[in-house]
Measured scan of single mutants.
Amino acid sequence: IEEVKKIVSEIQSKQLTRITINGNTYQVNSPEELVEYVRKVFS
C-alpha cells in the first residue's frame, strides 16, 4: 500500500495522463480515476 501511495503522489505531482500498471497503459483524466484503476489492480 505504501508503494501505491508513492506512485499516486508521483503521478499527481507530475500531472501524468497515462499510467502503466502490469504492462497495461491506462488513460487517466483525474486523480479520482487513477485511484479507481489502482483499486482494481490491487484489490
Rank of each mutant, 00 (worst) to 15 (best):
I1E: 14
I1V: 11
I1W: 14
I1R: 09
E2G: 08
E2R: 07
E2N: 09
E2H: 08
E2Q: 08
E2P: 06
E2V: 10
E3N: 11
E3A: 13
E3S: 12
E3K: 11
E3Y: 14
E3L: 14
V4G: 02
V4H: 06
V4T: 03
V4R: 03
K5N: 13
K5L: 14
K5V: 10
K6I: 08
K6Q: 09
K6L: 11
K6W: 13
K6A: 11
K6V: 10
K6F: 11
I7H: 03
I7Y: 10
I7L: 13
I7Q: 02
I7W: 12
I7V: 08
V8I: 15
V8Q: 02
V8R: 05
V8E: 04
V8C: 07
V8M: 08
V8G: 01
V8L: 13
S9E: 12
S9I: 11
S9P: 00
S9T: 10
S9M: 15
S9W: 14
S9F: 13
S9C: 12
E10H: 10
E10T: 06
E10P: 01
E10I: 12
E10R: 14
E10F: 10
E10V: 10
I11K: 02
I11V: 03
I11C: 04
I11H: 02
I11N: 02
I11D: 02
I11G: 02
I11Y: 02
Q12Y: 14
Q12P: 02
Q12L: 15
Q12N: 08
Q12W: 14
Q12M: 15
Q12D: 03
Q12V: 13
S13L: 11
S13M: 12
S13E: 13
S13V: 08
S13F: 12
K14Q: 10
K14C: 13
K14M: 14
K14T: 06
K14H: 08
K14L: 12
K14Y: 07
K14P: 09
K14E: 05
Q15A: 12
Q15S: 09
Q15M: 10
Q15W: 08
Q15I: 06
Q15P: 02
L16H: 03
L16W: 05
L16E: 05
L16M: 05
L16S: 03
L16A: 03
L16Y: 05
L16G: 08
T17W: 05
T17K: 07
T17F: 08
R18N: 09
R18L: 10
R18F: 09
R18C: 14
R18A: 13
R18Q: 12
R18W: 12
I19A: 02
I19V: 10
I19K: 00
I19C: 05
T20W: 05
T20R: 04
T20E: 09
T20G: 00
T20M: 04
I21H: 02
I21D: 00
I21E: 00
I21N: 00
N22E: 05
N22Q: 06
N22C: 14
N22A: 08
G23K: 01
G23M: 03
G23T: 02
G23S: 04
G23E: 02
N24C: 14
N24F: 14
N24I: 15
N24D: 07
N24K: 14
N24Y: 14
N24M: 13
T25C: 13
T25Q: 06
T25F: 09
Y26C: 07
Y26A: 04
Y26M: 07
Y26L: 10
Y26E: 01
Q27F: 15
Q27K: 10
Q27V: 15
V28P: 01
V28I: 08
V28F: 15
V28G: 15
V28S: 15
V28W: 09
V28M: 15
N29A: 10
N29Q: 10
N29F: 06
N29G: 15
N29C: 11
N29M: 07
S30F: 06
S30G: 02
S30K: 05
S30E: 04
S30Q: 02
P31C: 09
P31R: 01
P31Y: 09
P31T: 10
P31I: 07
P31D: 03
P31M: 11
P31G: 01
P31F: 09
P31K: 01
P31H: 06
P31W: 15
E32I: 05
E32L: 05
E32G: 07
E32N: 08
E32D: 09
E32R: 04
E32H: 06
E32Y: 06
E32S: 07
E33Q: 11
E33K: 05
E33C: 08
E33I: 03
E33S: 03
E33P: 00
E33N: 03
E33V: 03
E33F: 07
E33R: 03
L34N: 00
L34C: 02
L34I: 01
L34K: 00
L34Q: 00
L34G: 00
L34F: 02
V35W: 06
V35P: 01
V35T: 05
V35Y: 04
V35Q: 03
E36D: 10
E36M: 08
E36L: 06
E36T: 04
E36A: 08
Y37M: 15
Y37D: 01
Y37G: 01
Y37F: 14
Y37L: 15
Y37I: 15
Y37T: 13
Y37V: 15
V38R: 00
V38Q: 00
V38G: 03
V38E: 00
V38P: 00
V38M: 06
V38F: 04
R39E: 09
R39N: 08
R39S: 05
R39F: 13
R39K: 12
R39T: 11
R39Y: 14
K40C: 13
K40R: 11
K40E: 08
K40L: 11
K40V: 05
V41A: 14
V41E: 08
V41K: 05
V41M: 14
V41N: 07
V41T: 06
F42H: 03
F42N: 02
F42P: 00
F42K: 00
F42E: 02
F42T: 03
F42A: 02
S43Q: 12
S43H: 11
S43M: 12
S43V: 09
S43K: 10
S43L: 13
S43P: 04
